[in-house]
Design a protein around this nucleic acid. Structure first.
Length: 578
DNA sequence: TTAAAGATGATGCGAGCA
DNA sequence: TGCTCGCATCATCTTTAA
């Protein structure tokens, strides 16, 4: 899947690929034409096959339904009808036609289709499912059967389909069920979706992936104009509400049912990711609307981030003491040297790199020689560079990058949080640039204080320098058990050091590799301290961030694809509670 | 060998304008 | 409505210095 999945390009199916040839082997498209009632030829020519209607027909054929049923359904609906309507009719026809046969098939074990082979395999292992199938008399189970059949025709296993139906409920559409299964597949650690599958499963894997892509295309066609809509940022970027000078602005939101219930979770990443990324992230996190917030409403530096969480949003409160909100409040010594023509009051996003000495020297030389304000072109050069690199005035004609401790302060961390312990200055900037803005995150997490007066069990994925831990601590929420997953040894040391210095009474457990946090390990934690109350994580943004000139590859990038680990683990934790 | 410095655009959004 | 332009952006890679 591409991070730009919602781009228009994703609607174009390349019918000339190997997959196309594969389809041609399954569908009578290239070998024979068939007609629909209005006389249009849907298949048999290249142009015909590339139409949206043909794509739908192809997909239904691809599901290995009998051709006569497909034709009958198309006759009933006409080519303009929606994929789901045609599919629904095919399923109904097949249910009517095959019910006794299928029953007989199950009893005799003499089915020849791949689907029925699979079905029998599962039935032999699943008495309860078998019993339910054999006593299939209610309308609900009929509907479930149809959905089960449709999903298995898409090459999902009966087990996957059954779980999806069970989890998504009786009202869930095929779309929702496929979404659920795809999410579950991607979330499985040992069967990671994007890992190379074993050779024997490779063709099945690629075929399924292709079908899923086609389904995505059809879903988007079905949704029409909505398909082109990407998630928009609020203007101003205040999320569901931020404290303002006029008071606390609180908007309302409704949370999807599937997102409610324990544990609470909180996911973060850069707001300005490539197109479609947040749509994908949201779709994997229960379709929750992201909360886009610029931390400039909480501190003296901007930090535009998206947060997806299932936390309540009323009765939030700010960390005390309130952080400085302007550059001059945060860095009072700069006020003396700040020229009137530099009108900045807030810093831009604090990043992982800082300006070179060479640049600050160029700026000094560009300004020297002017008794009063420099000319417009010089001002523009200086301001542009200052904004780009977050330079501040530290002397006459002298700008400088922020010091590490200043960045710590602006992000809401204790002074010297990242200092010492063997970490280099470069790595301090890197760790800080990748971290949460504590005041912002604490504002969102503040609703937990009354809910967990006795303390909280935290699963902190991609912990970094412990932004979530610091936020909860500063909120006065005791940290009972913290499982911190962080690959960087330097960051682990920072969190461990902070843990010791703040005299935490709870337990801190470090895990380096998020991919090694499996179900067994989580079960151990659950058995040990009863499960997690909160799952926090800001997965790597490397392949999403605008500053990355080399590998801005979206959610499928090397680092940013770890988002799916967050989904996987959250799903496991949720499953252990419910 | 490691840390620091320096050079390296693309992308997407919004404002302004015709 | 569509175009141009300005602007911001949790970074990476190569070279240089210590």
């Amino acid at each position: 899947m591409d991070g730009n999945a919602s781009n228009d390009e994703s609607f174009n199916i390349d019918w000339d690929t190997d997959d196309e040839r594969e389809i041609e082997n399954l569908v009578p498209c290239s070998s024979s034409s068939f007609s629909v009632p209005n006389g249009n030829v849907n298949a048999g020519s290249g142009e015909g096959c590339s139409s949206a209607v043909s794509a739908k027909v192809r997909l239904i054929y691809d599901m290995k339904f009998p051709e006569d049923l497909v034709l009958k359904a198309i006759e009933q609906h006409g080519e303009e009808d929606q994929f789901e309507s045609i599919l629904e009719t095919v399923l109904s026809l097949q249910a009517l036609q095959n019910s006794p046969e299928q029953q007989q098939c199950i009893n005799s074990g003499q089915c020849s289709s791949a689907y029925n082979d699979d079905l029998l395999n599962v039935l032999s292992d699943s008495d309860s499912w078998c019993e339910s199938e054999m006593n299939n008399t209610t309308n609900t189970s009929m509907v479930d059967d149809k959905r089960l059949l449709a999903l298995t025709k898409m090459d999902f296993s009966v087990a996957e389909a059954s779980i999806a139906i069970d989890r998504c409920g009786p009202e869930a559409s095929i779309d929702e069920l496929t979404d659920f299964i795809i999410a579950a597949q991607m979330a499985r650690a040992d069967e990671a979706f994007f890992k190379e599958p074993p050779d024997e499963n490779k063709s099945k894997h690629s075929e399924r992936k292709r079908k899923l892509n086609e389904l995505e295309v059809l879903k988007k066609e079905k949704k029409g104009a909505q398909a082109n809509e990407t998630i928009r940022f609020p203007k101003p970027m205040v999320g569901f509400g931020v404290p303002t000078e006029e008071g606390t602005l609180v908007l309302q939101r409704s949370l999807p049912m599937a997102a409610t219930g324990p544990p609470y979770f909180y996911y973060e990443n850069v707001a300005q990711a490539p197109k479609g990324v947040w749509d994908t992230i949201s779709s994997f996190l229960y379709d929750i609307q992201p909360e886009f917030v610029d931390s400039k409403f909480f501190s003296a530096a901007a930090r535009k981030r998206g947060y997806i969480h299932n936390l309540p949003i009323d009765k939030r409160f700010l960390l005390k003491p309130l952080p400085p909100k302007t550059i001059h409040e945060a860095l009072p010594l700069t006020r003396r040297w700040w020229p009137s023509w530099d009108t900045r009051t807030k810093l831009n996003c604090l990043q992982t790199c800082t300006a070179s000495a060479k640049l600050t020297e160029r700026i000094r030389k560009a300004l020297e020689g002017y008794e009063n304000d420099p000319p417009q072109n010089v001002q523009k050069f200086v301001i542009d560079e200052c904004k780009k690199w977050n330079l501040v005035w530290v002397g006459k004609n002298k700008v400088a990058p922020l010091e590490c401790d200043e960045v710590e302060m602006l992000l809401g961390f204790p002074k010297n949080h990242t200092r010492g312990g063997g970490i280099s200055r470069t790595d301090r900037y890197k760790s800080l640039g990748n971290s949460f803005q504590v005041d912002t995150v604490a504002y969102h997490l503040s609703v937990l204080k009354d809910r967990f007066p006795g303390g909280i069990n935290l699963l902190s994925l991609f912990s970094g320098i412990g932004g979530a831990e610091v936020a909860l601590h500063r909120l006065g929420i005791p940290l009972k058990n913290v499982v911190s997953v962080e690959i960087s040894e330097a960051n682990q040391n920072i969190v461990r050091s902070w843990w010791e210095q703040t005299n935490q009474k709870g337990n801190l457990i470090h895990i380096a590799d998020v991919q090694k946090l499996n179900g067994d390990k989580l079960e151990e934690f659950v058995a040990s301290f009863g499960g997690f109350d909160l799952v926090v994580g800001g997965s790597p943004c490397n392949n999403l961030a605008g500053s990355n000139r080399h590998h801005r590859d979206g959610l499928e990038g090397e680092q940013s694809s770890l988002f799916y680990e967050y989904v996987r683990i959250l799903d496991l934790v949720k499953g252990m509670i419910s």
